[in-house]
Structures are given as structure tokens and as C-alpha cells.
Write a protein that binds this DNA or RNA. Structure first.
Length: 510
RNA sequence: CGGGGAGUAGCGCAGUGGUAGCGCACCUGCUUUGGGAGCAGGAGGUCGCGGGUUCGAGUCCCGUCUCCCCGACCA
């Protein structure tokens, strides 16, 4: 039975000497607020999403209502990614939700890949439509129809477009954020004069936008690599991916960046005249990250107390909690809030006198707020405040005059510690394998690293039938392999480059 | 599509033919508030839908719809 965590308080009138202590268990054990992540991880995930007020299911199966707190986190992700995407040179635009069904058909692999999960509109205005329209599962086709109109000359290139939108992929097994029939995302689409330039851009997005964001902001380490042909995006020549490890030992694909070659430019006849007057098809990329990142945040950092947010993404960095509304605590709390806000901190005041202190603490913990300032009459009398960190659970008493400085310090430390811990957890969950059987065994608790040559002649198929998938291919020194080469054994054995052999990262995955 | 379950208050559930219940949540009041507080009072239901059996159906029978889980399919 889980024990409730209880605060041990020391005398507030002591001189403001610094000390730390862990939260201690108590005798009373009320019913748990959320399921234990160790005992029932899926249930724990659902509980956290619900209790942190991130999202809930919509009336149609597979749909999702993103609640204000969850959406605030998503908005912060959007803002940060949007800035990075623009720094990479792309401009935002918006394309229609409805796509003529015929567009999807133009690229053979694309239509084959997406057909099973399309939502198709057959009626409009009370009549059957002459040509059904599909609700976009992704926008390659409709955006490329525009590209064909916009691009005429090498002077029009590169064309770098990004769209923030919702997309629909009908899902039979939905899970909030991780797999829903409708989700929100960003999709970038670019056109370039040469294959080399397109390839470089796809990698630039992968590393300088996606990986940097995931590591620096979300504090989630990712393995970058290339997808196998089997896992590749429908219509791409190469798919690059960011793969993360969740706390239950399963992998999550957090973002992908594709080289599309000339597949779509040929299908949609996107051509340009080069400086020699020759007509060429453009080389393209597309790339996206979605609200799935929300699921990653929950599962990479969450713990038995709920969500745990890295300060950089937290809508509320600090909550100032009035323990009880007496002895001038409210006024003092308000002035602390004002001071922290003036220093640019995102702060919320919790002075609710009608809800017990314990309940409020638990609720802020569930929401993953990185730092709490707890202020009671004893603190006010002693000119101190209690500072509590969400990620470590540690509390310390801080002299009032040092509070603002300590808040900044702790936020910085928390961001760093969360990343370091996530890296450590991933390392513990990663093991080497030299046979398929070893890989399958290792993948039960995390990433299995195996020679990519084992995937040939049915090897990948064997992993899949054991519920294990190849998350990505990379070099044994951790660097990215070459872009896709023609299918077959060469793909797996020959593309490692001179620096090292190609390894496969395999895992159970969401 | 195959197999298995479930539909009763916002959520989770009990209720083997005789007054529609419990826990949590919600509302009011008082006492509380340093890790999900206590007491008292209160509100909330066409028991998925349609038919049948019966003096009487949440309960039994027939039909129907929906949802969930496992598998299959899929990223």
C-alpha cells in the first residue's frame, strides 16, 4: 500500500539556516490519487492525463479535448518550435482541410500507406459529392499542388513552408496524445533545386530544430537515426527520426523528417528551369512533430506523484502557496509573486483558504509545477519561505531576501537535473545484443542495440513478430548513417560509411 | 472481421422479480487548513433503446444499438 507523503516541518523561528530533507512517509495511507507507475503504467498514464487536467476523450471515439492546462503546455511547445522553424528559414502558411481524393492517388506509396486510415467525406450540402474529399491525414498532396503553381524558376527555390494544423488518421486503438484520430501538429514542406540541398535541410530540421528542442526544452534525450524501409514514411525516400525512451521501457517516436526525393514533384509535376535553362523536378522534404510530444512529456518525466515538467516548458514555473491565510501570509505571498513576475518568472498565487493545504500541494504536484514556494505564518515571522522542488521532492528553507535568486537557481538546476536523469534512465534501459534473440530479450526493458546486418533476410520481420520494432539505424559511434540507398542487403550493410558499422536500435514502441 | 465482456447519478461501481443504492465528486452551513480534513444537511436517475412475460421488471425472455478488452489490420 502506498503511503502518503507528509511534510516534516522544522521550527520556523530558527535562524534562516539552510537545510534539506526528503519527504517522509506517514502512518496514514489514504486511497492513492493515481495508479502506481510501477504497477500499472497505462493506467497511471491515463490518470496523470486526467488529474493534471491535460486532456480527455471527445464524444467521437479517438477524438480528444485538450484542456486549458494541457493546451497551455502545447502553446509553449508551439511558440518555441515556431521560432526555431522560422530561424531555419521557413514561412508559415495554411492549406485546406479537405483534399480531393484524386490527389492522394497520385503518389502510389502515399495512397497505399494512408488509405486505411482516411476519413472520407461523401456528402456535402445535403447531396452526395461527385468526387469524395478526404480529411487531410497529412498535406503533402495539397501543398504540392500549390508548389506546382508557385515554382517556375531556380529563383523560386528553395521554397520553405510550414503549416500548423490538425490532421485526421482514423485510429482503431486511440490513446490520448499518443494516438488519436485527430491531432494537432506542425508539418513542414520544402522544395529544393538539388538532392543534396534537400537532404541537408531535412537533417537541419532533425537536429537543429527537433533534437535541440527536445533536449534543451523538453529535457528528453533522443536517439536520431534513419528509419528502415519498412518503417519509412509512405512516399519518402529516407525518413529520419527522433526516438525517445519512456519510463516503462517503451520507445516513442517524437518527430520525423523526410527526404521525399522527386516522388511528389514527379507526381505533381513540380518543375523549374535552372540557370542553364534546363527543366528539372524539385527535390523535397517534409517534417513534423505533433501533440504526441505531450505524451512524451508525461511518460518521460512523470512519477508516482503525477506530471513533472521541465521548467522551460512549464506554463507555471513557480506556484506561491499560502499555507494558511493568517499572520500576513497573503500580503507577503502577493509581494513575492509580484517580485518574481518582475524578474520574468511565470508565477501563480494559490491563496485558496477553502481548500486544505495538503490537497492544494497534491494538485500542483499532479500538474508538474517545477517549484513551490510555501509560505505560512511561521515563515513570515522568521522572514523565510520554504522552497520545494517537484523533480527531486526536496524542500529547503530560504531567507526571504535570497528567495528570488534561489528560485532562478533551482529552476535552472531542475531543468538540468531532469535531462541528466532522463539520460541516465535511458542508458540503464539500453543494452547491446549480438543476436536477434538477445535483441528481443533486451527490448523487453528498453533499447536493444544490434548489428544492422542481423535485420537482413527476415531478421526485421522476426523482431516484429515478437512485438519489437526497429526504431532507427545509426552508426555504432552514434553518428547518422548515410541517407537511404536502394533496398536490399546493401541498405543495411553498406550504408554505414567509413566511420563505423551500422547498428539498429530496436524496442517495443508506442 | 473473429473471440470475450459491459451498458444503473458527473466518474467508479453494487443491486437474482416487490420503495433506486454505495464511494468519490458536487451544493449549503459550521469547525478546519504546515502533505488530498471533519461533522451535519442537500441536490442529482426515462436503470442504453424497443418489444414481450408478470399483479409487479434494473432484475426474466426476444430484438436492437453503443462502448470496452484480446486478436487481426495499421503508424
Amino acid at each position: 500500500m502506498r503511503r502518503r507523503a507528509v511534510l516534516r516541518v522544522s521550527g520556523g523561528t530558527e535562524q534562516p539556516r539552510e537545510y534539506h530533507h526528503r519527504i517522509m512517509p506517514t502512518e496514514h495511507a489514504p486511497e492513492r490519487v493515481i495508479a502506481s507507475p510501477d504497477e500499472d503504467f497505462p493506467r497511471w498514464y491515463q490518470d496523470v492525463v486526467a488529474k493534471a487536467e491535460l486532456a480527455e476523450g471527445g464524444p467521437v471515439r479517438g477524438t480528444m479535448v485538450i484542456r486549458p492546462y494541457g493546451y497551455a503546455i502545447w502553446e509553449r511547445m508551439q511558440a518555441d518550435l515556431d521560432r526555431r522553424i522560422k530561424e531555419a528559414g521557413a514561412s508559415n502558411a495554411y492549406f485546406p482541410l479537405f483534399i480531393p481524393e484524386s490527389y492522394l492517388r497520385r503518389e502510389a506509396e502515399h495512397v497505399e500507406g494512408f488509405s486505411p486510415e482516411l476519413a472520407v467525406v461523401t456528402h456535402g450540402g445535403g447531396r452526395e459529392l461527385e468526387e469524395p474529399v478526404v480529411v487531410r491525414p497529412t498535406s503533402e498532396t495539397i501543398i504540392n499542388a500549390s508548389f506546382a503553381k508557385w515554382i517556375h524558376s531556380h529563383r523560386d527555390l528553395p521554397l520553405l513552408i510550414n503549416q500548423w494544423a490538425n490532421v485526421v488518421r482514423w485510429e482503431l486503438r486511440p490513446r490520448l496524445f499518443l494516438r488519436t484520430s485527430e491531432f494537432l501538429w506542425q508539418e513542414g514542406h520544402t522544395a529544393h533545386a538539388t538532392r543534396g540541398e534537400a537532404g541537408e535541410f531535412a537533417l537541419k530540421i532533425l537536429r537543429e530544430v527537433y533534437e535541440d528542442f527536445m533536449v534543451d526544452v523538453l529535457a528528453i534525450p533522443v536517439l536520431t537515426g534513419r528509419k528502415t524501409a519498412r518503417e519509412r514514411f509512405a512516399g519518402a525516400t529516407t525518413t529520419w527520426t527522433c526516438e525517445a525512451m519512456m519510463r516503462d521501457g517503451k520507445a516513442l517516436q517524437m518527430g520525423t523528417s523526410h527526404e521525399l526525393g522527386q516522388n511528389f514533384s514527379q507526381a505533381f509535376d513540380i518543375t523549374f528551369l535552372d540557370d542553364q535553362g534546363r527543366r528539372n523536378h524539385v527535390w523535397q522534404t517534409s517534417w513534423g512533430v505533433s501533440t504526441r510530444l505531450m505524451g512524451a512529456l508525461v511518460m518521460a518525466h512523470g512519477d508516482a506523484s503525477g506530471l513533472c515538467l521541465p521548467p522551460a516548458i512549464a506554463p507555471v514555473e513557480v506556484v506561491v502557496l499560502v499555507v494558511r491565510a493568517e499572520g500576513g501570509t497573503v500580503e507577503r505571498a502577493e509581494s513575492i509573486v509580484a517580485e518574481l513576475r518582475s524578474k520574468g518568472r511565470r508565477v501563480e498565487l494559490d491563496a485558496r483558504a477553502d481548500t486544505s493545504f495538503g490537497r492544494r500541494v497534491v494538485s500542483w504536484e499532479l500538474k508538474g509545477v517545477p517549484l513551490r514556494v510555501e509560505l505560512g505564518p511561521r515563515d513570515v515571522a522568521g522572514e523565510t519561505a520554504v522552497l520545494a522542488r517537484r523533480d527531486t521532492g526536496t524542500k529547503s528553507t530560504v531567507p526571504m531576501g535570497e528567495l528570488a535568486g534561489r528560485v532562478s537557481e533551482e529552476l535552472r538546476a531542475s531543468q538540468q537535473a531532469m535531462l541528466a536523469n532522463a539520460v541516465l534512465r535511458r542508458e540503464r534501459a539500453t543494452s547491446e545484443a549480438s543476436t536477434l534473440d538477445q535483441a528481443i530479450a533486451a527490448a523487453q526493458k528498453g533499447f536493444a542495440v544490434l548489428p544492422a546486418s542481423l535485420l537482413a533476410s527476415g531478421g526485421e520481420e522476426r523482431l516484429n513478430s515478437a512485438g519489437v520494432s526497429v526504431r532507427c539505424l545509426r552508426r555504432s559511434d552514434g553518428s547518422l548513417p548515410d541517407a537511404e540507398v536502394p533496398e536490399g542487403a546493401d541498405d543495411l550493410e553498406g550504408a554505414g560509411g567509413a566511420d563505423g558499422k551500422l547498428v539498429a536500435i530496436a524496442a517495443k514502441a508506442y
